[in-house]
């Protein structure tokens, strides 16, 4: 079994739940406490991917870079994005401006990594009505960008779709799908 490593970044405005998503994915935990990330925090999780064709199992070690959220005073440092194979762009469904700034983040990421992949997480979906979420999902599909894989409504609190977005990105980065 071979292991390859990939760097992925979580990008989004401050307080959209990037750290919580990582915590849910890596440690299966959630906390309501808000702790602002300073600079960058790096987590690691190895996921096992089953190749569609190859019988051999492939392990992908995800080096997850939790970047300091975008604020109006300070943007995302492009050097932190460098070398990333993929990114999860996170927005907060309860804050419209975070949704609107996603395209900005997508552009920034693709400027730094033209070959990277992006998956969209509309987080805190547990705090919003379901019908409205469906509408949001259809509004933020970014279909014109082929390297944006899909948009998911996630909840770090309930764990909804959290593993899916990471695994989907992992599959894509490993070149399996």
């Amino acid at each position: 079994m071979s292991t390859i490593s990939k760097k992925i970044c979580l990008v989004g405005d401050f307080g959209v739940g990037k750290t919580s998503l990582i915590r849910r994915f890596v440690e299966q935990q959630f906390s309501d406490q808000y702790l602002s990330t300073v600079g960058v925090k790096i987590s690691r999780k190895t996921v096992e991917l089953e190749g569609v064709k190859e019988p051999e199992k492939l392990s992908l070690q995800m080096m997850i870079w939790d970047l300091e959220g975008h604020t109006k005073f300070k943007g995302i440092a492009p050097t932190y994005l460098a070398g990333a194979g993929g990114a999860i762009i996170v927005a907060d469904v309860t804050r419209q401006e975070t949704l609107e700034r996603m395209s900005e983040h997508i552009n920034l990421f693709f400027t730094v990594n033209p070959k990277g992949f992006i998956i969209i997480a509309l987080n805190k979906s547990d705090m919003f009505e379901e019908e409205k979420i469906d509408k949001l999902l259809s509004n933020y599909q970014f279909e014109e960008e082929k390297r944006v894989l899909s948009t998911h409504s996630t909840s770090a609190k309930t764990g909804k779709d959290v593993d899916i977005i990471f695994h989907k990105l992992a599959d894509k980065m490993a070149g399996l799908t």
Binding site: S5, G39, V40, R44, W65, A77, A82
Partner: peptide, 14 residues
């Protein structure tokens, strides 16, 4: 090693 390398890289970038 992976964590050390990641953090060193982040520090360098910073």
């Amino acid at each position: 090693s992976d964590m050390v390398a990641g953090m060193l890289t982040a520090i360098r970038s910073f």
